[in-house]
Write a protein that binds this DNA or RNA. Structure first.
Lengths: 204, 204
DNA sequence: CGATTGTGGATTGTTGACAATTTGATGAAT
DNA sequence: ATTCATCAAATTGTCAACAATCCACAATCG
């Protein structure tokens, strides 16, 4: 019997949330731009219900801010000192998870990592920024889920969504892929020290 | 002109979420106990819509876990090593916020702190565990919001909900009040060092 | 007897309609 | 011109009904 670890069926809410999250993190919206339920419902071809659920979820995650009776708006990313503190928390979580992952990752994990990296490469080549963001999050997330736990992953996510990575610092998108490739290669070869260095470099 | 910093009007979703959160954190439910939408809707006298929203929010926060088409169940708190790591993150956030709060808190803040402490005292006296939990969260939360920022507050919350404080370690509920009273007194007298010590003691 | 496949009841997912609230414009009174 | 009340449009909040899905248990087949 075969059980699919990654369920292919996903609710409308989840799909809408994922797509919007990637677009928001890719800076496709202006800060404070309102997200209207009706417009999104039409765009995704569903009723307002699932859209509402997705918007509420993204508000909890930190990508949007919610005001009673006034809907949701795009949440501005953390700035300056705030960002530094949040980033230090994120780094601490990821470095802790990295140790656990390198210690006991199996062939399945190695394959998964390569798969994500491949998708990132394709996204970078196509210059599809939302897809790049998605694969970036997926990679880090995989490390944390496997190296730490689901609970830690949730905390990490609440941080990662609130500090938008500055993709514009890399003039060429393929740089993003290369950075992560170095990280993955270090992990696959079991070199924790080098993996830590690559991760730190990636987190600016 | 007067603007109310704390809006008195709160949506049904928010009220339901707050009440359920306190009850969950007060261990009024068994781990993994399912939360049925219909039953809760009847209990709160509303339709399933707002209940659904509240359950989704609490799932995002970490108090509940959500499974597609199978509803939500109460999430077991982090255990052992996982808990230690999460607690170290929480302590780091709170200690950082404490510094900022002691530095620039005004009379308004001092009054708010005393108010929360009074409510905690009443709750402890009445042995109303959900209310104790609520005031406990409110106190820490106020420190963080004012000492750091709303974004940090959100991250802190995602941690705090996932590690349930063990209230049973204090045989007498008034102990909980005393612990926090010491913390507040240290803050009000501007003694950062003593405040840090009190906070560390509180966080076990 | 063990495994597989229907089937019914319970539960969640989605929808469209309606109620409540906010917002911005309009116009009257001072 | 300024202020204030009033109204209409837009938007969110809530509801009840319906559709889709899951689970436990019985029926069937090897």
């Amino acid at each position: 019997m075969m059980k699919n670890a990654a369920p292919t069926i996903r609710s409308a809410r989840e799909q809408i949330a994922d797509q919007l999250r990637n677009e928001i993190l890719a800076d496709l919206f202006c800060d404070d731009e309102p997200m209207r339920e009706a417009a999104l419902a039409e765009r995704f071809g569903v009723s307002r219900g699932p859209v509402r659920d997705a918007l509420l979820q993204l508000s909890q995650e930190g990508a949007l801010t919610y005001k009673p009776n006034r809907g949701v708006r795009v949440n501005a990313p953390a700035a300056n000192g705030e960002r530094d503190f949040m980033m230090s928390l994120r780094a601490r979580i990821e470095l802790e998870a990295l140790r656990g992952f390198v210690r006991d990752c199996d062939d399945r994990d190695r394959e998964a990592l390569r798969g994500i990296l491949d998708r990132m490469k394709a996204a970078c080549r196509a210059k599809d920024v939302p897809a790049i963001v998605g694969s970036d999050l997926a990679l880090h997330r995989y490390l944390i889920r496997r190296g730490a736990s689901e609970k830690v992953e949730a905390v990490w996510k609440s941080i990662a969504v609130r500090i938008r990575m500055d993709y514009s610092r890399l003039t060429k998108y393929m740089e993003i892929h290369r950075e992560h490739e170095q990280l993955v290669e270090a992990i696959l070869s079991g070199d924790l020290k080098q993996a830590r260095a690559a991760l730190k470099a990636n987190l600016i």
